[in-house]
């Protein structure tokens, strides 16, 4: 394929830690192949050579936390033929979504020496709350094999094969005995979207929910099972308050276990 025929790729950063973009750079030998198939036209983290859009594929990392970014995502959408959000920040609001449960001005006052310079929104919201998104790739961080699957599928004009199964499905296929059943370790796997390959249960740890809620997540029933294993209210509250805290099923479950004296 001639160079001029390659589809163009742009990678955008919003409020995020850059870890998901790094997953792309971490693709090692596949990165060279990828660079041969896609014309990397805009990727600040990788190169200072930019070319103007429109772009055939945009990967968007990060959540919307400022008024300026709420405007910028519209221009990114406008110059992108396909827009794929990558990571928990972009798909659920990220760890910074914890501000949604508090007054962000308190955080600003506590963190910054000169809070008057900070212009920020009261909430952290996913990209899909602002513009239409063609595909959401979950995870904190994303899995690089899943990212390559999304890009390969884009290049072949097929649907990515990334099922919405629970993490339990990954454990069972890998032959990992359930950590809740065999040693009573609380695990978010039954309500968490697959994609990590059951990384934590493979090391006898419970799932932390990095990939966000699974389809049909029954968080209330899982919470009762955690209670039966001896988990207290505060631990349950915090378990659902991590990288995907603002995703609805996790948000509602954490609110159900909020401190009665501080009900958020």
């Amino acid at each position: 394929m001639a160079v001029r025929d390659r589809p163009t790729l742009a990678v955008w950063k919003f409020a995020s830690c850059d870890g998901c973009q790094l997953s792309l750079l971490d693709c090692e030998e596949s990165l060279l192949t990828l660079a041969g198939q896609l014309d990397i036209a805009y990727f600040v983290e990788a190169s200072s050579a930019f070319r103007a859009g429109p772009y055939d594929l945009s990967l968007v990392e990060g959540s919307i936390t400022t008024a300026a970014d709420a405007e910028r995502i519209r221009s990114v959408r406008a110059c992108s033929h396909r827009l794929v959000t990558i990571g928990a920040c972009a798909t659920a609001g990220g760890i910074q979504g914890l501000r949604n449960f508090a007054d962000v001005r308190d955080f600003v006052a506590a963190v910054y020496a000169s809070p008057e310079y900070i212009r920020t929104l009261a909430t952290s919201t996913p990209i899909a709350a602002h513009v239409p998104v063609d595909f959401e790739l979950r995870g904190c961080p994303i899995d690089k094999h899943q990212l390559l699957e999304v890009i390969s599928a884009f290049l072949a004009r097929r649907k990515p094969d990334l099922p919405e199964d629970s993490v339990c499905t990954s454990c069972k296929r890998a032959g990992i005995p359930c950590v809740m059943v065999t040693h009573g370790t609380p695990c978010l796997g039954p309500v968490t979207h697959a994609g990590c390959g059951a990384l934590c249960p493979a090391y006898a740890r419970g799932c932390y929910g990095c990939f966000g809620p699974a389809e049909q997540a029954n968080t209330a029933s899982l919470s009762r099972a955690w209670n039966a294993l001896g988990t207290d209210r505060r631990t349950l509250h915090r378990a659902f308050r991590s990288f995907n805290a603002a995703a609805d099923p996790f948000r509602m479950e954490s609110e159900a276990h909020a401190d009665p004296d501080h009900p958020r």
Partner: peptide, 12 residues
Amino acid sequence: ERCLACANCTLV
């Protein structure tokens, strides 16, 4: 109300 739809029963 109790089922997690996690698929464990079917996979064991």
